[in-house]
Design a protein around this nucleic acid. Structure first.
Length: 321
DNA sequence: TGAGCTTTTACACCTTCCTC
DNA sequence: GAGGAAGGTGTAAAAGCTCA
């Protein structure tokens, strides 16, 4: 090989360049990227400049102390991030393929209800099967969970989604039935079958208006030309259940939140309200760490046989929580 | 105007290739 | 295989830029 020809050592060391670029894109700062990569700041800056020069594009818009991805930068990040993550996690991925993942970290974002009702048994099983893997649970709202997923701050999110953004893939795995809960001595407690018009006159206790539960209740009552009345707005299903027990109203909840220990009458409403699904929420194109793959496989052993981007995997579990 | 950040510059070290 | 040359990668220090 002649010296002036296409030497590939150092020059065009794409991996280092892409690692620096991805890290800067994620942190929004060359300095923070350097800190994260245990390099000096100029080193990272030069890697990014070399990448821009060799690709003949501007990847970051520099405005003083702030850097922002350009459209070209965003495109490259979508392509590069899974590659860099894949190579950096090669050893763990290889170990996973050989069934030897025994350490590492798994970061999961989930909403409060998911953390309270769905995750405990999953986390317990995962921790038992993989005691060396440290699990990090982030209690977040749906919006914050998506932001963390997009920023690669978590490996995956677990929860329920109604509207799925284009860059996100949602894979429902568990489904739960909608139910009416009333105090034990409520007039509706022994009424079977329950009809929507039976519910209409009674005051409802619902989660806050901006949450999906209220939206679904509103839609269903309107579809049946029925009125409904909310007497109490309460955040969190534990709170809702408590106030229903106290006789302050009735509520429409998803059976996931029922443990069987409540002093409540539970009546099916699946004739009127849609079932609620819970599952894995992933960022499209994101590299899945071996730990994340293990967790997803534990939730749904057939998940990867259907292809990771399958949009409608078969449901695993029906109602009851 | 200073803080906080990035870029530029100079230099040392390391890796690879070529020549002998 | 050893030594020299070329070039890539790293750091420290200085300069430059933007924003509050």
């Amino acid at each position: 090989m002649g010296r002036s020809s296409n030497r590939l050592y150092y020059k065009q060391n794409r991996l280092k360049q892409l690692r620096a670029f991805c890290s800067a894109a994620q942190t929004g700062s060359v300095s923070k990227a350097a800190e994260r990569l245990y390099l000096s700041q100029p080193s990272v800056s030069l890697q990014i400049q070399a990448l821009e020069r060799e690709l003949n594009v501007t990847l970051f818009e520099r405005r003083g102390p702030k850097i922002h991805l350009t459209p070209d930068g965003r495109n490259l990040y979508e392509l590069a991030q899974p590659l860099v993550h894949g190579i950096d996690a090669l050893a763990e991925t290889f170990a996973a393929e050989s069934g030897r993942v025994t350490s590492g970290e798994l970061a999961i974002a989930a909403g409060e209800s998911t953390l309270l009702y769905l995750m405990p048994r999953l986390v317990k099983r995962f921790a038992t099967e993989h005691p060396g893997i440290r699990i990090k649970l982030q209690n977040v709202t749906g919006r914050d969970g998506l932001a963390m997923l997009r920023a690669d701050e978590v490996d995956l999110a677990v929860g329920s989604m109604i509207d799925t953004p284009d860059d996100i893939s949602y894979h429902p795995i568990f489904t739960y039935d909608p139910v009416l809960i009333t105090p034990l001595d409520h007039p509706l407690a022994r009424k079977k079958p329950i009809k929507l018009e039976d519910v209409s006159p009674h005051g409802l206790i619902l989660p806050p208006r901006h949450l999906s539960t209220w939206r679904v209740v509103d839609t269903v009552f309107h579809q049946h030309n029925l009125d409904y009345r909310v007497t109490l707005e309460a955040g969190g299903w534990e709170v809702v259940k408590k106030y229903v027990e106290l006789g302050l109203g009735i509520s429409i909840v998803t059976s996931i939140c029922l443990t069987g220990a409540e002093r409540l009458a539970v009546l099916p409403l699946d004739k009127y309200f849609p079932k609620r699904s819970y599952g894995a929420v992933l960022r499209r194109g994101k590299f899945l760490t071996p730990q994340a793959r293990l967790f997803i496989e534990m939730m749904d052993p057939e998940f990867f046989n259907r292809g990771a981007d399958a949009q409608a995997p078969a449901k695993r579990k029906q109602s009851g929580g």
